[in-house]
Design a protein around this nucleic acid. Structure first.
Length: 425
RNA sequence: GGAGGCGUCGCAUAGUGGUUUAGUGCACCUGUCUUGAAAACAGGAGUAUCGCAAGGUACCGUGAGUUCGAAUCUCACCGCCUCCGCCA
C-alpha cells in the first residue's frame, strides 16, 4: 500500500512506475475518488459535530418542550448523515479496490522489460561443470539412487506429489541445518513459522488480492502460505517496535504451498515445481531509510552468494525487470543456479526490498529520534528452498558412475558421507 | 463437540444509556525543591484522520445495529480463561 498523500503529490511518478511494472492502473480515477472521499467526510464530520453539541444540550436543558424539539431536529440531521455515509461507503469501496492494486514504485536502476526474459545478468560465479559423459537430470538421479518416490507421491498427494527418502531426505535436513547455522552465526533469529495463515498477513505482504489463484484456500479466511515471509511479516503486525531493536533479522523455516494454477505444462517432472516444499527465508525489518534498505538488500543477497560459493554451485545474479516485479517490490535480484540438464540457470533464490509498502498494510511501526511514528522498511530473500536447491546441487555434483559427490561443507551434516551411491540390492 | 466467564489509554483497575472531552493507581516526561538523587508538590502526556490554523471527527477486541445520545443495550465474528466430553 502506498500513502494516498504520496500518490496525490507524486501522481506522475506512481503512474509511470505502474507502467514500468506493466500494471494497468488509473491514478486519475483514484484521485477523483479521493477528492470525493474528502468532501463527503468533511460534510459528515461537520454534521456529527452538530449532533454531538446538541446532544449535550439535550441533557443539560431542563425545558421538556425544547428537548422534544431538539430531538426531532437531530433525527433529521441523522437521516442526512446516514445518506451521506451510504455515499461515502460506495466511494470507499472503489477507492479501496484501486488502492490495493496500486503498485510500489520500482527503483530507477530497475531495467525495462515485460517478463523474466528481460532480466539483466549482473554477475556470474563458478565454472559450469564439464562432463565427459551424458549428464542425467535430477529426476533420473534421484530415482536411480532411490532418493525419491514420485509414483507413491502422486498416489498419496496427487499431481506433483513426492516422497523424499534415504539420502534424498538426509540431503534436505543437511541443507537446512547448514544454512540455519550460518544465519544464526550472523545474528539472525531462527523461527519455525505457521504455513496456515489468515487473510490479513497475505494482504499485508501483497500476496492478496492479486494472487488468489496461487494459494490454497482451506477455510473461510485461512490459506496455506507460499512462503515463510507471510507469517514472519505478520509476526509484528499492529505493533510499535523499539528503534533500538532494529534491524530485526529473522531466518524462518516453513512448509510452503503453491497451487501453481495455470502452470500444468511447466516443469511437470521432478522437484523444481511442486505444490509443497520447504523453505528457509530471510526477513529483515529495518528503519525507514532508502539507503538502509539498499544496503540490506545487498547484504541478504551476499549471504546467499557466499553460501552458493561454499557449496561450489555455479550461479548468476540477475536484476529483475519492471514487468517481473511483484506489486510491492521496489527492486529484486534473482539468484539462479546452473542446471546442467537444462543447460540454463534456474531461479533458486529471490531477493527483494519493499520500502514501507508491506509494513503500511501490516501496520508495523517504530518511533524515530524525533518521537515520530514511522513505518519500518522490510526486505526478504530466500535462504534455502528445498526442493530447488538440492535439485541443482545433485545435477552439478553427479559423477560418471551415477553417484553424487557431497559438497564438503555438507558432509558433517550427512554423517561424514562423501558420495551417494547406488545401493546393492 | 458442550456449558459458563472475560476482553477499557504501556500495566493494573473504575465505569451497565447523558456534566465521561473515559476516572484512579503504578510506570513515564517536564518543572519546583536539592550539591546530586530519592521523596514530596505542581503540571504534562495516546493513535488515526481533515485543516494554514483555531479546531473538528473517529477509536473502550473487530464489524454491524438500536438511540437525539453507546465503553454501557442487541447481533455476528476474533481472541483469552474455567469446567465437561473426546483424543493422547
Amino acid at each position: 500500500m502506498l500513502d494516498i498523500k504520496f500518490i496525490r503529490e507524486n501522481k506522475d511518478i506512481v503512474q509511470s512506475g505502474a507502467k514500468k511494472k506493466h500494471i494497468d492502473i488509473d491514478i486519475d480515477r483514484l484521485i477523483t475518488l479521493d477528492d470525493e472521499r474528502l468532501k463527503i467526510m468533511k460534510e459528515v464530520e461537520e454534521l456529527r459535530s452538530e449532533v454531538n453539541k446538541v446532544s449535550n444540550n439535550i441533557v443539560r436543558d431542563q425545558d421538556p418542550a425544547l428537548k422534544i424539539q431538539l430531538i426531532e431536529e437531530m433525527r433529521l440531521v441523522k437521516e442526512d448523515i446516514k445518506g451521506k455515509e451510504e455515499k461515502l461507503k460506495e466511494v470507499m469501496i472503489e477507492w479501496q479496490k484501486i488502492m490495493v492494486h496500486v503498485p510500489n514504485v520500482p527503483d530507477m536502476s530497475v531495467p525495462d522489460g515485460a517478463s523474466d526474459e528481460d532480466n539483466l545478468e549482473i554477475r556470474t560465479w563458478g565454472e559450469k561443470p564439464v562432463f565427459n559423459f551424458t549428464p542425467k537430470d535430477h529426476v533420473k538421479l534421484l530415482e536411480d539412487l532411490d532418493m525419491v518416490d514420485f509414483e507413491r507421491g502422486v498416489k498419496v498427494s496427487g499431481f506433483r506429489g513426492y516422497f523424499m527418502k534415504n539420502e534424498g531426505a538426509m540431503l534436505f535436513f543437511a541443507l537446512w541445518q547448514y544454512f540455519l547455522n550460518y544465519f544464526i552465526s550472523k545474528g539472525y533469529t531462527p523461527m519455525i513459522v505457521p504455513s496456515l495463515v489468515r487473510k490479513e498477513s497475505l494482504i499485508g505482504t501483497g500476496m492478496l488480492p492479486q494472487s488468489e489463484d496461487d494459494l490454497y484456500k482451506v477455510g473461510e479466511n485461512e490459506y496455506l502460505a507460499g512462503t515463510a515471509e507471510v507469517a514472519t511479516m505478520g509476526y509484528h503486525m499492529n505493533e510499535i517496535l523499539d528503534k533500538s531493536d532494529l534491524p530485526k533479522k529473522f531466518i524462518s523455516f516453513s512448509p510452503c504451498f503453491r497451487a501453481e494454477a495455470g502452470k500444468h505444462g511447466k516443469d511437470v517432472k521432478g522437484i523444481i515445481r511442486v505444490h509443497e516444499f520447504f523453505k528457509i527465508e530471510q526477513v529483515i525489518l529495518t528503519e525507514a531509510s532508502h539507503s538502509e534498505s539498499v544496503s540490506w538488500h545487498e547484504e541478504i543477497t551476499a549471504h546467499v552468494e557466499y553460501l552458493m560459493q561454499e557449496l561450489r554451485l555455479p550461479y548468476h545474479v540477475v536484476v529483475n525487470c519492471g514487468g517481473d516485479l511483484g506489486l510491492g517490490q521496489v527492486k529484486k535480484y534473482d539468484i539462479e543456479a546452473w542446471m546442467p540438464s537444462q543447460e540454463k540457470y534456474r531461479e533458486t533464490h529471490s531477493s527483494s526490498y519493499f520500502h514501507d509498502f508491506q509494513t503500511r498494510r501490516l501496520n508495523i511501526r517504530y518511533r524515530d529520534e524525533d518521537g515520530k511514528l514511522r513505518f519500518v522498511h522490510s526486505l526478504n530473500n530466500t535462504a534455502c528452498a528445498t526442493s530447488r536447491l538440492p535439485a541443482a546441487l545433485i545435477e552439478n555434483y553427479q559423477q560418471e558412475d551415477g553417484s553424487i559427490k557431497i559438497p564438503e561443507v555438507l558432509r558433517p551434516y550427512m554423517g561424514g558421507m562423501e558420495f551417494i551411491k547406488r545401493k546393492d540390492k
